[in-house]
Structures are given as structure tokens and as C-alpha cells.
Design a protein around this nucleic acid. Structure first.
Ligand SMILES: [Mn+2]
Ligand SMILES: [Mn+2]
Ligand SMILES: [Zn+2]
Ligand SMILES: [Zn+2]
Lengths: 146, 146
DNA sequence: TTTAAGTTGAAATCCGTTTTCATTTGGGCG
DNA sequence: CGCCCAAATGAAAACGGATTTCAACTTAAA
């Protein structure tokens, strides 16, 4: 999903829900799309405050929730205790590799793992709605430093 | 790992760390092992309080952390915002199927998925230390009710 | 026993998240 | 345009689970 596409989708969402287009929401969305993925509310807020000191944390928080509702962002939780958001850049699902040393996050997708998940769930009578797969370890850079 | 084995392992751990064996720790460990798995601190505390109203929440919390440190328990986080603990009943790793409707948790282990995880990580230069795989959906009972 | 170190429980504190509320703003309507 | 009101905003308060503080108490070694 491109940047323009996301913005349009958000505008449509606001209209459809009887919500209003505001300057803050535009600024926040813009910065969210500009910034790298997997940002926490706090991180995005700090970035925004540099150029727009009057924006409140609560508004950033509420906007991110709207982005998620509308489908242009997704909330994630990697065990550090705070929610992170990433743009839904494509329709494809992906999982994450996380370096426990430097914090780097790499995305991946493996159809074989996905298929096995469905199979295993089926064996237990479950139908899967969603899943979470996170691999924690050392990235190449951090391994070589050792 | 049997109940007696866990108790011994914990005693050894306390000794080795210069910590003390106390009545509370024994009661808490006993109830932890007796109760079903995946209990939150709060849930264990409530169970304990019925027979032993003088035990404090903080002590339950601290004991669970000790159990985890010592290796007889593991902390888990399933997206409901609170930590859960389970006894390390066996040395084998396992993942979880979680019913979003009734909350049932089923454990599973699939060597094929585990192998693929290592393979995928390797392709990205990562060496895995640990992982988290959770499948959320509807269990057989909840699916049939629909 | 005596004593030092560890433990306990109640209450306070932490910290990310969410809500409250007085005030401001967006945008439909005349 | 201005009016009006529902929605949005930002500062501050509230929330909730995890963690810490601290004075009183317990453990176990001497
Ligand atoms: Mn991602
Ligand atoms: Mn389990
Ligand atoms: Zn790294
Ligand atoms: Zn169920």
C-alpha cells in the first residue's frame, strides 16, 4: 500500500465513520508513513514534537488506534512492554526476526510454516484466526562482534 | 518434571543462592504445582488466599519469579496484558493454541515448524535463541456452538 | 540464645495505556 | 460568510499490572 493510497483510505474511513479530518491527523499520518516501521507511540510522538510541539501524546495515541481500525496500520507487541505500530505496506502477512542484542527487526514470510500452522491447528480441532510468530536471537552483525 | 523433582530443584536453588526456605515459598510452590497451568499471579494469589489468607500478593509475585529463575516454571505472555506461569513439566519446548472465544489453551509441538524456523532465521543471518509461536482461533467446542 | 541476613505484607511507586473534561475546531446549513 | 453542534484536542488524571519500599518478622548459622 503506497503512501497516497493509505492517505486516501484513511480519508474514506473518516468520512464513512462520521469523523473529522483534522490538521493533527494529517500530520500524524504523514510522519507515521515517513518514519520507519515498528515505532512505539512514544517514539512517533517524539518525532512529531520536533516540528509540531503543540501536538499532544493523547492525540498521537488516538490516531494510531484509528489507523489500525482503518486498516492502514497494525499494532504489534514484541516483549518489551510497549505497543508498536507498522504500516500495512502490502496485503501480505509477515512474521518477525528480532535481534536481542541491537533490536533490529527483520520481516519474513514462509508459506511452509503458515501451512503447517493450519495443519497443526486442524489436528486439535482449531480453526486459526490469526497467529504470532517471533524469532528472537542474534543478527549477523551482532554475532560477528562477539 | 515431577512435583517432587520440582520441589527438590527449588530447594537446591535456594541453597545455592544463599536464599531461605520459608513456609510461604513452600505453600506457594505447592499450590502452583497443584493448580492447572498458565495461571496469572493474581489467579494463583486468589487460590492461595482461600486457605492461607495471610499470604501477600507481593510474595506470590516474587516466588513465581524465583520459580522461573530456578527453571521449574516459565513465564508466558498471551496478549491479555498479564504474565502467566506454567510449570516446566518436561524438558521439551512447546507452543500454544489459544481459543479466542473460551480461552482454552492447548499445547503442541511440531518439529517441522521448529526446523523451518531455524532455516528461515539462518537465511537472514540470525541464530535463534528462543521463539514465540501462538495460534489464535476457535476450538472445536466453540466452533460447533456457532 | 544471639545475631546478621533474608523474607514478608501493606502500601507506595512505576510506567505504558487510556480516559476525563474544559476548550477548540471542523464543516454542514442558512 | 457566521452559527451551531458534534467531534477533536491536549493537559492532567486515572487505570492496571508489575515492581519496589520499608518496618516488622523469620530463618538458620554461630
Ligand atoms: Mn513488521
Ligand atoms: Mn504451555
Ligand atoms: Zn543485532
Ligand atoms: Zn473455545
Amino acid at each position: 500500500m503506497g503512501s497516497t493510497e493509505s492517505k486516501n483510505k484513511f480519508k474514506d474511513f473518516l468520512l464513512s465513520q462520521g469523523l473529522k479530518s483534522t490538521n493533527q491527523r494529517e500530520l500524524i499520518l504523514e510522519e507515521f508513513l515517513r518514519a520507519g516501521s515498528h515505532l512505539s507511540t512514544e517514539e512517533l510522538y517524539i518525532r512529531l514534537r520536533k516540528k509540531h510541539p503543540r501536538i499532544g501524546y493523547a492525540t498521537v495515541h488516538r490516531s494510531l488506534k484509528l489507523f489500525a481500525q482503518c486498516g492502514i496500520a497494525e499494532q504489534r507487541h514484541f516483549g518489551d512492554g510497549q505497543a508498536r505500530y507498522e504500516a500495512s505496506d502490502h496485503d501480505e502477512h509477515h512474521d518477525h526476526l528480532i535481534c536481542v542484542s541491537c533490536g533490529k527487526i527483520v520481516e519474513f514470510e514462509d508459506p511452509r510454516i503458515e501451512a503447517l500452522q493450519v495443519e497443526v491447528a486442524g489436528e486439535h480441532g482449531f480453526s486459526i484466526e490469526r497467529h504470532r510468530l517471533e524469532l528472537y536471537g542474534s543478527c549477523a552483525d551482532c554475532s560477528s562482534i562477539t
